[in-house]
């Protein structure tokens, strides 16, 4: 998987959906979310970016947080996708994929014209 650093503007646009995507696999606590994003090639997402985003996703009703009891202390907060979050991910994920295909055509017009019959 690439470890390339993506431009901040691109990450800002897709990070919310990417977090929903990694939580769709399994619930996770904050640092595990950051690790999964890094493993999938989005690079290092700092805590200062991740937790405010998780808060906004919770406010939107797409993610819910629950405290997992620890052996000695308050434990960890585990985030999971809600049914509304799963629907949002399916709809917006499909649109994002369509956007990427469209962007690909715009950025490589010669390849597109080869595919398009005159």
């Amino acid at each position: 998987m690439t470890t390339e650093e993506w431009p901040t503007e691109w990450l800002r646009a897709v990070l919310g959906l990417a977090v929903l995507g990694v939580l769709d696999d399994a619930p996770a606590h904050g640092y595990a979310v950051a690790q999964r994003l890094a493993e999938r090639g989005l690079g290092d997402v700092r805590g200062g970016t991740l937790y405010p985003l998780l808060g906004r996703l919770q406010d939107a009703g797409w993610v819910e947080g629950e405290w997992e009891p620890g052996s000695a202390g308050p434990g960890r907060k585990v985030f999971r996708l809600t049914p509304a979050g799963r629907r949002h991910l399916a709809e917006q994920g499909e649109r994002w994929a369509a956007f990427c295909r469209t962007t690909g055509v715009v950025l490589s017009p010669s390849a597109a014209s080869e595919r398009t019959p005159r």
Partner: peptide
């Protein structure tokens, strides 16, 4: 308090 515990857990696990 929740924000502090989340922050503390993140720092312990990441080592940052």
């Amino acid at each position: 308090g929740e924000h502090l515990v989340v922050l503390d857990t993140h720092l312990r696990e990441s080592g940052e």
